[in-house]
């Protein structure tokens, strides 16, 4: 299909468009399907983008951080902490290492035990936050050295629980994109059915048009334009409703976690604007293909 043909297909031609009756259940069907699919596509897109953000955040935030946990009797805790910090300061690939204060540790535990936790009466391990630097940390070597010099130290590089979480977020993102593809496919299938029904219902009109010398491309264009514009306007309405739904979702907050961050951010707000365009493109291709096939059958 040449660019000229696509331009002529999209160009409004009021008189030519009039040859197809303006009403019929296929008109409502196309509007409804494209609207509903666009509405779902907005949510699938929001899910996909939010999952992507989450995967990136978890990946980057936790990738450079390691935690050292020191479990020792109370009278040895300070000495072992000091020894651990000394070892860490001598280890290549560590940008900084610091022991968490009592308040910081209490804050970490407060979601489980409440805000008034008497930390000094509990055998809580001392945590040391390690930020990786260049050229990267040799976790295995560090573990060996700590095992020898700080017997109560356990090095946690977060790999064990970080990777499944990041993978889960990535899977959600993939699921979102797959949903969008499925929505596109379902839209194409429904519009193809509607176009076929419309062409079959208007077989007599096609016969009249051929009688007066209409080329198949003229007849196809009249149907293609009709369905493309209907799909576009249906999708615009669906996107507007979908965006309203997304706007009504609770705003992202640290306390709310993933579900409250299910929306658009920054340039992401512009992406739904592509949905009507893509919906129209899908309708265009589906109707063109259906019309070409049907007109061949009717000849």
């Amino acid at each position: 299909m040449s660019k000229g043909m696509i331009r002529s297909l999209l160009k409004r031609d009021t008189r030519a468009d009039r040859v197809v009756p303006p009403t019929g259940y296929t008109a409502h069907l196309t509007l409804f399907v494209s609207g509903a699919m666009a509405f779902l596509a907005v949510f699938a897109l929001a899910l996909s983008l939010a999952s992507g953000r989450l995967a990136d955040r978890w990946g980057t935030e936790l990738a450079g951080a390691v935690t050292l946990r020191i479990s020792a009797p109370a009278d040895q805790m300070d000495a072992q902490t000091e020894a651990a910090l000394t070892v860490l300061s001598q280890t290549p690939g560590i940008a900084s290492a610091r022991a968490l204060t009592t308040e910081e540790q209490a804050a970490l535990l407060s979601p489980w035990f409440g805000p008034d936790l008497p930390l000094d009466t509990l055998p809580v391990p001392q945590l040391i936050e390690i930020i990786e630097g260049e050229p990267g940390l040799d976790a295995a070597g560090l573990r060996l050295r700590l095992g020898a010099e700080v017997p109560g130290a356990v090095l946690d590089d977060h790999t064990r629980w970080r990777e499944p979480l990041v993978e889960a977020a990535r899977s959600l993102r993939r699921l979102g994109w797959v949903s969008i593809l499925l929505i596109g496919g379902a839209t194409a299938a429904m519009i193809t059915l509607a176009a076929n029904a419309s062409l079959a219902a208007n077989a007599q009109i096609i016969e009249v048009l051929r009688l007066v010398g209409a080329r198949d491309s003229f007849i196809a264009r009249a149907f293609v334009r009709r369905f493309t514009y209907r799909a576009f306007f249906g999708a615009v309405v669906g996107v507007l409703l979908g965006m309203t739904g997304v706007l009504l979702l609770p705003e992202a907050s640290d306390a709310g976690g993933f579900l409250t961050g299910l929306g658009f951010q920054g340039y992401g707000w512009l992406l739904p604007a592509l949905i009507p365009v893509l919906g129209a493109a899908v309708a265009f291709l589906a109707t063109w293909s259906a019309a070409s096939r049907k007109l061949k059958e009717l000849s």
Partner: peptide, 25 residues
């Protein structure tokens, strides 16, 4: 082919018994 057929039909005027109009126009 179908395009050439369409061009040929423009040189032939046909009056059918049942006329065949588009009622919405």
């Amino acid at each position: 082919d179908r395009d050439q057929l369409a061009l040929m039909r423009r040189r032939i005027g046909v009056v059918h018994q049942d006329c065949q109009f588009l009622d919405h126009m």
